[in-house]
């Protein structure tokens, strides 16, 4: 049986989640490997959530926020960017390929971008294979 990656997506309410909705309204197909969790702001995402996802069987984690300058909460996405960068370093230390964590800016008008990002990310994780380094 071929490997089907499990991916958790944390999407901010105002941009990325709305972008994902637009992908739906536009009927853009993308793989179902990704399950979304809505948060109000990408700045709400605690690195702990990401680690928790990897610990519980995720092969990849996608974080979607507003483009720089567009954050509904002014600068939550900038905090998200820093935290994701640090979390990537942490993952590397832990022996987890940092490519398994991805931060993307998706606006409410970028349905196509959302579908493309998800398709590419699922493919990338498929290439990386299942995350084995789990305790």
């Amino acid at each position: 049986m071929s490997f089907e990656p499990k991916i958790v997506a944390f999407l901010c309410n105002w941009c990325a989640y709305a972008g994902a909705d637009l992908a739906g309204v536009s009927r853009l197909k993308y793989p179902a490997n990704i399950i979304p969790i809505k948060v109000l702001c990408s700045g709400r995402i605690d690195p702990e959530f990401i680690l928790h996802a990897f610990r519980n069987g995720a092969d990849g984690v996608l974080v979607g926020g507003c483009h720089p300058g567009d954050c509904h909460y002014i600068k939550g996405n900038y905090y998200a960017r820093r935290r994701i960068l640090l979390t990537k370093k942490l993952l590397k230390e832990m022996g987890i390929n940092e490519r398994r964590l991805r931060l993307e800016w998706v606006s409410a008008t970028e349905g196509r971008k959302f579908a493309t990002v998800v398709s590419q990310f699922v493919e990338e994780i498929r290439q990386l294979g299942p995350l084995e380094a789990r305790k």
Binding site: A20, A23, G24, P31, A32
Partner: peptide, 16 residues
Amino acid sequence: REQCSWVHESKDATEK
């Protein structure tokens, strides 16, 4: 709907 039935095929969509 927007994040499932409209973007996925039948079997995957039900699981998701």
